[in-house]
Amino acid sequence: MEYFIQQLVNGITLGSIYGLIAIGYTMVYGIIGMINFAHGDIFMIGAFVALISFIIFGLTGVALPIILLLVLLIAMLFTACYGWTVEKLAYKPLRGSFRLAPLISALGMSIVLQNYVQVAQGARVKPMQPLISGGLEFFKNSEFIVTVSYLQIFIVILTIILMGIFTYLITKTDLGRAQRACEQDRTMTALLGINVDRTISITFIIGSSLASVAGMMFVLYYGVIDFYIGFLAGIKAFTAAVLGGIGSLPGAMLGGLLIGLIETFWAGYVSLEYKDVAAFSVLIVVLIFFPTGFLGKPDIEKV
């Protein structure tokens, strides 16, 4: 039982990270109908920016909460630039090209980003000393003590705050309206005088910023990153987006949580070696039997 609760806590933390990345997939899919294959690598870049800023601010001796806030903003800013540029360079010229073109372009972009970071930052893993340590302990009298670290609390709370802001953005502002209009019908939206290109750009910016937050959490949580983390995390987050129903924002968060839980429980109860197989299997099973996910709209192909 205690072990179960511990896994639950770990799963929710991991799920928050996946959920934040998944939002990027789902938003881009919603608006331009493509799988942004490079999104996992944007997350990885976010993690690197966060790591670099942590090191720099670590030297200044500023108080921890301020460091966290600064790093958060810096990571979001710089990573958003990457998201924006990738869209401009690799996807925008392809609107209206043939079916597989954006996907191949995205794959190319993903390869570029990964190897670029490898060249720029080196191939070795980058360890970082834990910044936030300690935690709350429960069930002290039992055999297995459940620990909820402050870091985990931080991650979950930050996720909830961001989700709140984000939901507000999408549902209550002009930007959100423009975005939803673009999802429905891009040509019509453009005719109504909405700048579609800008709306798409902003979508990428938001998606990348959220991914960078996930990257920062990843650095803090695992304490070690390398240029390759985007691949696996990206696939898992994509699975999350599909599981929740691609195109649906609450779905992405829900899917993220589920994938986080599935992964931790699988690792905890079934087999640690095959933990990545769990994520991939879920992906395959969901796509085959359940392609609209939990909260997605049914997709009848219009003929």
């Binding site: 696939i235 070696e273 085959i288």
Partner: peptide, 28 residues
Amino acid sequence: FPVLRLRGDYLAIVTLGFGEIIRIILIN
């Protein structure tokens, strides 16, 4: 057999997943 019904982009991801699963199985 199970995946070829899928739309093009999903197919790409699923095949990628299969590739990775096979590799992980080979390792373990």
